[in-house]
Amino acid sequence: MIRTLAFLVLLAGPAMAQDPAEAAQTAAARLDSAATMLAEARSGEARVDALTETVRAYEDGLSALRQGLRQAAIRQRQIELDFDARSGEVSRLLGVLSTLSAAPTPLLMLHPSGATGTARSGMILSDVTPALQAEAEELRARLEELALLQSLQENAAETLEEGLAGAQEARAALSEAIGERTDLPRRFVEDRVSMAALVASSDTLQGFASGLAMTVAADGEAPPPDASAFRGELPLPVDGTILRRYGETDAAGIERPGWVLATRPRALVTAPAAATIRYTGPLLDYGNVVIVEPAPDTLFVFAGLSETYGRAGEVVPQGAPLGLMGGETGEVQAILSESAEGVDAPRSETLYVEVREGQDTADPASWFSAEMRSTQ
C-alpha cells in the first residue's frame, strides 16, 4: 500500500509541495524496514517493536496521502479558476493556432501589397509566433497537469481503502502481540486489591497519584528509569496539536494543570521516554488513563485513550506503545470529500497530558518539546 501511496503522491509532481512526497517515500522505506523486522522477530518484544513501527508507517503514510490529495484538490481548483478567468483569451489563442495550422504554407507567405508586404508580414509573424508557441506550451502544460490531478483523485480511493485496512490490521496485531508479551523487565508486582481500593476511594487525580506507592506488592529486579537528563527534549506521546496549554481555561471555564492535545482518530500513543508503568485503566472522569514514571518521584499522566497497553510494574522503553486513541478513522468517500473541499483531516480526539513532580503539577513544557513527534 505505501509503495502505491508514494507513487500517487509523487504523480502530481509540481502540483504538490515536496513535503508530502518525501513523507510518503519515508513511510514506504519504514514499512519495508518494519516488514523485515517482523519477519526476523523472535521474541515478544521484537514483534511488538516491529508492529509498532508498522502502525507508525501506516499513520505517516496515510497522513502524507491526505495532505497530498488536499494540495492536489487546491491546485486543481486554481487551474480551473484560471481557465474560467481567461476563457476568452484561451479561446482566441486556440482559434489562432487552429487557423495557422490549417492554412496552406504558400498562402501564409502571400500578401496583397506584393513582395514588400509579404516580407513585412513575415517579420511580424516571426515575432508573434514564438509568443504564441510559448502560450500554447503553457496551455498544454496546464491541461496535462489538470488531467494528472484528476487521474490522481480518481485512483486515490483504492489506495486509501488499502491503507485504512492495513493500518487497522496492524493495530489489531499490535494489541494481540502486547497481550502475549511476557519479556519486559519489572520493577514491581502490583497489589491488585490495593489498586482496586485506591481507584474506588480516590476523588482527585492528586489523591490517586499520592496513593500509588501503596499498591506495590513486591519489588522486582529492574532498576528505575531516569529521564531527567532529557527534560525539555522529550517527544510528545502522540502525533497531535496543542489545543490548550498548562493553566489555560477551556470554553466551559475549566482550568486543568496540563496540556490538551488534538489527535487524529485511532492515533498511537507511545512512551516519550523509558518509564515504569504505574497504572492503566479507567480513572475518575478522565476516561482510560495510562500513568508512567520516567524519573524518580515524577509521573506522566495520559488520559482520554480508547485502549491502553501494558501492566503496572513493567518497564517500557522509549517509543513503546501505551495505547490507542478512540474515534473512527472515516470512510474513504468522506476522506476524498474532505480533500476535494481542501479540508485537512480532522483531529477529533483529545489526549490530556499532565506532569506531576512529587505532590505538585508541573508545566509539561518543562519536559516535552512541542515540535517533536512521538513517531520520530
Rank of each mutant, 00 (worst) to 15 (best):
T4P: 08
F7H: 11
V9K: 01
L10P: 02
P14K: 10
E22V: 13
A23R: 06
Q25H: 09
A27Y: 01
A27D: 04
R30M: 09
L31V: 11
A34N: 05
T36V: 15
R42C: 06
G44F: 09
G44E: 02
A50I: 05
E53I: 01
E59T: 09
E59R: 05
L62M: 13
S63E: 08
R66C: 00
Q67C: 09
Q67E: 07
A72L: 00
A72K: 04
I74H: 04
I79M: 07
L81N: 13
D82M: 11
F83P: 01
V90N: 14
P104A: 08
L108T: 11
L110G: 03
G117N: 08
T118L: 13
G122N: 10
G122V: 01
D127H: 13
T129V: 10
T129G: 03
P130E: 07
L132R: 10
R140L: 13
L149G: 04
L149Q: 03
L152E: 11
E154H: 10
E154M: 03
E158S: 14
L160S: 01
E162C: 07
G163Y: 06
A165T: 13
G166V: 03
Q168Y: 05
Q168K: 10
E169Q: 15
R171W: 02
L174Y: 02
L174F: 07
A177F: 00
T182E: 15
D183A: 07
P185C: 07
R187Y: 06
D191L: 02
M195C: 09
A197T: 13
V199D: 11
D203R: 13
D203F: 08
T204K: 11
Q206S: 15
G207P: 08
V216I: 15
A222L: 07
D226P: 05
A227Y: 03
F230P: 07
L234I: 11
P237S: 10
P237Y: 04
V238N: 06
G240L: 04
T241Q: 14
I242A: 09
L243R: 13
E248A: 14
T249M: 15
E255L: 10
E255C: 01
T270V: 15
T276S: 07
Y279E: 07
T280L: 02
L283Q: 09
L283F: 00
L284F: 00
V289Q: 03
I291M: 13
T298A: 14
F300H: 13
F302A: 08
F302W: 09
A303Q: 06
G304T: 05
L305K: 04
E307H: 06
V316R: 00
V316M: 11
G319K: 07
G319V: 08
P321T: 03
M325S: 00
E331A: 14
A334R: 13
I335F: 08
L336P: 03
E341T: 00
E341Y: 04
G342A: 02
G342C: 05
D344E: 14
P346I: 02
T350S: 15
Y352D: 08
Y352L: 08
Y352N: 06
R356C: 04
E357M: 14
D360N: 12
D360I: 05
A362W: 02
A362S: 12
S366E: 15
W367Y: 12
F368M: 01
M372P: 00
Q376V: 12
